[in-house]
Design a protein around this nucleic acid. Structure first.
Length: 568
RNA sequence: GGCCCCAUCGUCUAGCCAGGUCAGGACGCCAGGUUUUCAUCCUGGAAACCGGGGUUCGAAUCCCCGUGGGGUCACCA
């Protein structure tokens, strides 16, 4: 066997989230495409690397917890990075290009600032934020677009001297020539220099701005392909200008279409607040209905549509209002019970098309391994895409239904252990296994399972009987459903022998009905109502088995009692 | 408002680059069927080339102009 020497990657992509919240579904797609591109390079004989960097130059908004959560969400989705912060087996620094958090890289930037300053392509500027604001206001009053350009009275010697004693920022002197961006998705785009200004590259406090840090870090880390959302398109000429000023090579850019909500606007965490706010107003809430949110916070939030509640507070409120909030971050989808593979499959389809099947038909369902092999920049589309939750749900339902019973139980218990532990506790592994085949085709998300199995969790003497169902299946007919229930209990259940399991139960029902020369639906529906309270439930054998013989008989007795009382 | 991007069924999209197809698929919707309920499953159906000019024998496809939508204009990233 040939021992492979450590090889340099032939293509390097990167995902650089700023840790100021949970991972947005749009960010997940960006990461997914970066990952997929690197895997595609592997599949075509090269060596691809997907690296992860933490963009925390804005210290005030960044948090360690958020960074960790983003990493975990990515790992859960199956989007592993070959270089970056370590998380279990994922990450590492084989090429020694870290550290990965920009806040830990501050020392690296200084020499590049100096280089630019010496070359005269960067210069200090001394205007205060207030002065700048005034200049912008004035430009606006004259219906002009404000652009910062070097002052006419700028003098290098004086400015450099002034730097020593006075607060200042560093700005890049942008070249007069147009900047042409070659984008793999959008094609060639020309930006004329009069439309962007001498932007800030070093803040007053000495830290680099995003533009500067990105350009330097990407170059130092050897990033060859920058895949990012189209909202960054207008930043690209700045980055290109910076690269040429710094003598760096310009990476290959690919700007991907944006993901919108069903209203055609950018998906945002804010819409979750808005959904809850509308519901709260409709419910005529004036003060906080739950302990998690204090009164003044609630009142302010209710009035001001720019205010946002914390994640848990919002969830608690939604729970109180019986509301399902639109999922926006990866964690929302995870909590709702979507499978990671399905999420990746679905978001990959938002703006990208896989190759066709061998027989020429369209392909829509695929796994991560396929995506990694098949991904090509050329098949990224241009138009922005709306996020259709209904279709996602359908994909998830299909994926759930396609699982073996064993793996479904696995996925179901894993999810429940994390988000609905009472379900695991009260159902137990045995009844989960029993119910799994019935739950599987009936849910779109794992969280919907609770509705399907609620009857099994309820107390035997506390079944709420649906009045319509009582009328329809218990009181009508000759003999009535209620009488059949009594008879079935007496004939079949009272002296039940052997296992009380789906198969024998179904057989017993079939035999009992045959002896009376009637269809089995005649007794199945009354049983459903007595056991679950409604006419809708899993197959009757499973339904009865899940409740147990004693439970079934108790529920029948209770039902007979209640309905008889109504009748008299 | 300046600049930039985009435009095929309600939605995601194939087809466009290298003009000629009943404009295909998926989700959803509608109608049937299977099933002891529901769900699953099966069959069928309605549903789109933003508008106007050009180029061409021929335009969803190429060009121009409109219109519409979106992004972006910070010492945030």
């Amino acid at each position: 066997m040939l021992l492979r020497m450590p090889t340099m990657p032939t293509a390097i992509t990167r995902f650089a989230p700023s840790p100021s919240g949970s991972l947005h579904i749009g960010g997940a797609r960006t990461a997914l495409f970066c990952w997929a591109f690197a895997r595609h390079i592997d599949a075509t004989g090269g060596l691809g690397s997907f690296l992860l960097r933490i963009e925390d130059t804005d210290r005030a908004r960044s948090s360690e917890a958020s960074a960790k959560a983003i990493l975990e969400d990515l790992a859960w989705l199956g989007i592993g990075w070959s270089e970056g912060p370590e998380l279990g087996e994922i990450g590492g620094d084989p090429r020694n290009v870290g550290p990965w958090a920009q806040s830990a890289r501050s020392g690296l930037y200084e020499q590049y600032f100096q280089r630019l300053l010496e070359a005269g392509t960067a210069y200090p500027a001394f205007e205060s934020p207030e002065e700048l604001a005034a200049m912008r206001a004035e430009a606006q009053a004259n219906k002009q677009t404000f652009r910062y350009t070097q002052r006419a009275d700028y003098d290098r010697e004086t400015a450099l001297a002034r730097m020593e004693t006075q607060e200042h920022v560093l700005r890049l002197h942008v070249p007069a020539e147009p900047i042409v961006v070659h984008d793999q998705v959008l094609g060639e785009i020309t930006f004329t220099s009069e439309h962007f200004d001498d932007f800030v590259i070093r803040k007053k406090d000495g830290s680099p701005t995003y533009h500067f840090a990105v350009v330097v870090d990407d170059a130092l880390m050897g990033v060859t392909h920058v895949l990012r959302g189209q909202e960054h398109l207008n930043n690209t000429p700045k980055h290109v200008a910076l690269q040429s000023a710094l003598g760096f090579e310009t990476p290959i850019y690919a700007h991907m279409p944006l993901i919108f909500n069903d209203k055609g606007a950018k998906m945002s965490k804010r819409e979750r607040d808005q959904t809850a706010r509308v519901a709260a107003r409709e419910a005529k809430l004036t003060e906080s209905p739950i302990a998690e949110i204090d009164g003044t916070t609630f009142a302010a939030w209710l009035k001001d549509k720019t205010k946002q509640l914390g994640h848990d507070e919002l969830e608690a409120l939604a729970g109180h209002l019986g509301l399902i909030l639109p999922e926006v971050s990866v964690d929302d989808f995870r909590r709702a019970g979507y499978l990671p593979g399905v999420i990746c499959n679905f978001i990959a389809l938002l703006g990208w098309t896989p190759s066709k099947h061998e027989d020429g038909t369209d392909r829509e369902k695929f796994d991560m391994a396929f995506l990694g092999r098949d991904f090509e920049l050329g098949r990224i589309g241009k138009p922005n895409a709306r996020f259709d939750r209904v279709k996602l749900a359908s994909f998830n339902q299909d994926a759930l239904a396609a699982m073996s019973d064993e793996s479904f139980v696995g996925a179901w218990s894993t999810w429940a252990a994390r988000y609905d532990s009472t379900l695991v506790d009260s159902l137990g592994q045995g009844r989960m296994t029993l119910l799994a085949p019935s739950v599987k085709p009936r849910v779109k998300t794992l969280s919907e399972s609770r509705g399907i199995i609620a009857f099994a969790l309820a107390a035997h003497d506390a079944i709420e009987l649906d009045p319509k169902s009582i009328d329809k299946v218990l009181r009508k007919g000759e003999p009535s459903g209620l009488e059949l229930l009594r008879a079935f209990d007496r004939d079949a259940l009272q002296s039940w022998a052997g296992a009380f399991a789906p198969e024998p139960i179904e057989q017993a029902i079939a035999q009992w009905c045959e002896s009376r020369d009637m269809k089995s639906g005649k007794i199945a529906q009354p049983l459903r109502v007595a056991i679950t309270g409604s006419t809708v439930s899993p197959p009757i054998g499973v339904t009865l088995a899940a409740v147990g013989l004693d439970g079934v008989r108790t529920r029948i007795a209770k039902c007979v009692e209640v309905v008889a009382a109504i009748a008299s």
